Amino acid sequence: MLKDFKEFAVKGNVIDLAVGVIVGGAFGKIVTSIVNDMIMPVIGLLIGKVDFTNLFISLDGTKYLSLAAAKEAGAATLNYGVFINTVIEFLIISFSIFIVIRQLNKFNKKETEEESKASTKTCPYCYTEINLKATRCPNCTSEISEQLSEQ
Rank of each mutant, 00 (worst) to 15 (best):
V87C: 12
L78N: 11
K106Y: 05
T122H: 11
E114P: 01
L91G: 08
I130H: 08
K133N: 06
F95K: 05
L67C: 00
E89R: 05
K63D: 06
D60N: 08
S66A: 10
C123V: 11
Y64P: 00
F107D: 02
A118G: 05
T128E: 14
G74I: 07
V87W: 13
A69S: 14
Y64I: 04
A68D: 14
K121L: 14
F83A: 11
I88R: 08
E111M: 12
I84P: 06
C137L: 09
E114M: 09
C123P: 00
V100D: 00
C123Q: 04
K63G: 08
A134E: 05
S116N: 09
Y127Q: 10
K63Q: 15
I84T: 14
T112L: 14
Y64N: 03
E129R: 03
I130G: 10
G81Y: 07
I88G: 08
A75R: 01
I93W: 00
S94C: 14
S96H: 06
Y64S: 00
F98W: 07
F83H: 06
T120K: 15
I92R: 01
G61N: 05
S119N: 06
N79E: 09
R136P: 02
P138N: 06
K106C: 04
C123Y: 12
Y80H: 07
T128M: 09
L59N: 09
E72P: 00
Y125H: 09
N79T: 07
I93L: 04
G74K: 11
Y125N: 10
Y80F: 09
S96D: 11
A68Q: 07
L59P: 00
I97G: 10
A73P: 06
I92A: 05
Q103L: 09
F95S: 10
Y125K: 07
N139F: 14
N108I: 10
I93S: 12
N131T: 05
K117F: 03
V100P: 04
L78H: 00
T128W: 14
F95T: 05
L104P: 03
V82R: 10
P138D: 03
K121H: 12
R136L: 03
G74M: 03
L91A: 13
T122I: 15
K121W: 13
F107K: 13
K63R: 13
T135V: 14
S94K: 12
G81I: 01
C137G: 15
C137W: 09
T86Q: 12
Y80C: 00
V82G: 15
T86M: 13
N139Y: 12
I92N: 08
I88L: 15
Y125I: 13
I99M: 08
I84S: 02
Y80P: 03
E72K: 12
S94G: 11
A76W: 02
I92Y: 13
A134N: 05
K117S: 04
R136Q: 13
T62G: 09
